[in-house]
Computed example of a mutant assay.
Amino acid sequence: MLTTTRQARILESLRSNGEVTVDGLASLFGVSPSTIRRDLNSLSDEGLLRRVRGGGSVEPDSVPFQDVENQHRSEKMLVAERAAQLVSPGDVVLIDIGTTTALLARHLRGRQITVVTSSIAVIDELRDDDTIELIVLGGVVRKNYNSMVGALTEQALAQIRATACFLGTSGIRPDGTLTDTTGMEVPVKQAMIASSAKTYVLADESKFPGVGILAVCGPDKIDAVVTNEGADPATLEVLRAHDVEVVAA
């Protein structure tokens, strides 16, 4: 089993059970306890879980939205500004959760468009804009990251037919796979892709490869990636080989 696959399953177990043990995981995957310890240490270093005494681990709350917002802010602002140029009057736009997508919403103010979102941060940016038609998807509020998730969100997305969706991401792997760190966000992103004629990914240079461990989709589902010049050139070439447009910010 690949390391990334095993670590993804460790996170799934955490989300289901709240905690895991080294011995239990070693038995489950048929590997040594030292291998599991390395996995847990790696996931802990990425902020995806918290180590506890005795070799166990529990999933922490996600890094607060306000903290993520200040990371690589100048790069995110460039990406958001460039992405806004891809939106035309009359478009129906799905905007994902995330700090870069919230900046995108700021650049869309005053446009004759419809915005559909489950991001509370995007709602805050556009709630007082009389020009934009704002449609809010329902769901369970994930307070720490200013978003709504769950079956209600996914069901609402199934009724939408959007011109384009703009996705945030935790990372893009060297093979072009789009990733996320939170299991409950993955089906929402996948529903956005299914409901949109085009899929744009907003990824500043730090997202190559980023910290995502859960696969959202392959490059075949992506129309374009908006990024800046520090992005990994090898990954960008892989994206282009899959007919993904790379839009420079």
Rank of each mutant, 00 (worst) to 15 (best):
M1T: 07
L2I: 09
T3C: 07
R6N: 06
A8W: 05
R9V: 05
I10G: 03
I10Y: 01
L11H: 13
E12A: 13
D23F: 05
L25A: 01
S27P: 00
F29I: 15
F29V: 09
V31A: 10
P33F: 07
D39M: 06
N41G: 09
S42K: 13
L43A: 07
S44G: 14
D45A: 15
V52P: 01
G56F: 01
P60C: 01
D61P: 00
V63W: 03
V63C: 03
F65S: 00
E69N: 14
Q71R: 12
R73Y: 15
S74E: 15
S74D: 13
E75S: 15
M77Q: 15
A80F: 09
A83R: 03
Q85T: 10
G98E: 04
T100K: 08
R111N: 04
R111H: 13
T114L: 06
S119M: 01
S119I: 04
A121P: 02
E125V: 12
E125H: 14
L126F: 11
L126W: 14
I132N: 01
I135T: 05
L137H: 00
L137N: 04
V140P: 02
V141D: 00
V141F: 08
R142W: 13
K143L: 12
A156W: 03
T163P: 02
A164K: 08
R173Q: 14
T177N: 11
T179D: 09
D180H: 14
T181K: 08
G183L: 15
M184F: 08
M184H: 04
V188Q: 03
Q190I: 12
A191E: 06
A191R: 10
I193A: 08
A194K: 15
L202Y: 02
G210A: 09
V211Y: 07
L214R: 13
L214N: 00
V226I: 15
E229Y: 10
A231H: 01
V238R: 11
V238G: 03
L239W: 06
L239G: 02
A241T: 08
V244M: 12
V247K: 02
V247M: 03
A249W: 09
